[in-house]
């Protein structure tokens, strides 16, 4: 079986398995509901009097801090705790298919959760003359940002057999990655380091995408970060399979 075909099989299994337990549905309801609370109820959408979704997209990096580790926390940690990891690693498929499959399965769940937020653009388009360019850019960026967050979460899930630790670790790491470009970091670090950290900020690269500007540099950043954490994930599993 080819790497991609095996990966898709694993992805399908992970995607469907997520909805065999209430957790999958919680994830599916969490994102649209909390987004709507932040955007319409507590946010200044009506006060701004402008038909745009910028506020919603700008809240996504923070929502992903909670959501994406919740999706990935069980993917490896649960296998390890239940003792099925060894069995999985002996499957007749390459390690990269396993890692990629787990990642794609998690990405599918996130995409479903993002799909569930489509009520927001539909409502805003009904209320006013919505520019769909930034909406497309925002969703595209959300998938890329989510991919990088999931890859990080997946890597941390592979490092532990405790789901809570995987979730907490993932949330903490994502929080750090979202704060790297903040003013507090810039003030506390020398300028050159501040610039480097700014470049690593997950949220900063999402800003352009959320306003409808798709820059190759931002796309490449998320792809590189995703590939990096997936590779680390693979190395952790490799170590375990050898030991």
């Amino acid at each position: 079986m080819s790497t991609m075909r095996s990966a898709l099989l694993v992805a399908k299994r992970e995607f469907l398995a997520a909805f065999d337990a209430p957790a999958g549905y919680l994830v599916l309801a969490f994102l649209p509901a909390l987004s709507a609370v932040l955007f319409f109820v507590t946010g200044p959408f009506f006060a701004f009097d402008t038909a745009e979704l910028r506020g919603f997209f700008l809240s996504l990096p923070w929502l992903f801090v909670i959501l994406t580790p919740a999706i990935t926390m069980r993917l490896w940690a649960e296998e390890k705790r239940a003792g099925t990891e060894e069995l999985l690693l002996t499957w007749p498929m390459r390690l990269r298919s396993l890692v990629l499959g787990k990642f794609l399965g998690a990405w599918g769940i996130l995409a479903a959760a993002l799909f569930a937020t489509l009520g927001l653009p539909i409502t805003v388009a009904y209320l006013g003359d919505l520019d769909f360019g930034p909406v497309l850019g925002g969703y595209f960026g959300a998938l890329l940002l989510g991919g990088a967050c999931l890859a990080l979460g997946l890597f941390l899930s592979a490092c532990t057999d405790n789901q809570i630790v995987a979730w907490l670790g993932g949330a903490a790491m994502l929080l750090v990655f979202n704060l790297l470009g903040g003013a507090a970091t810039a003030e506390a670090t020398p300028p050159w380091l501040g610039r480097v950290l700014l470049e690593l900020d997950f949220g900063k690269h999402f800003e352009d995408l959320s306003r409808g500007v798709i820059s190759l540099a931002d796309v490449a950043f998320y792809l590189v970060m995703t590939a990096f954490f997936l590779a680390l994930n693979g190395l952790v599993l490799l170590r375990r399979s050898w030991s």
Binding site: G212, A217, F221
Partner: peptide, 15 residues
């Protein structure tokens, strides 16, 4: 990442 940051392509989707 340094190389990626200097990629020039850009698409402005706003109306």
């Amino acid at each position: 990442l340094g190389l990626a940051a200097h990629l020039p392509g850009r698409l402005d989707l706003t109306e």
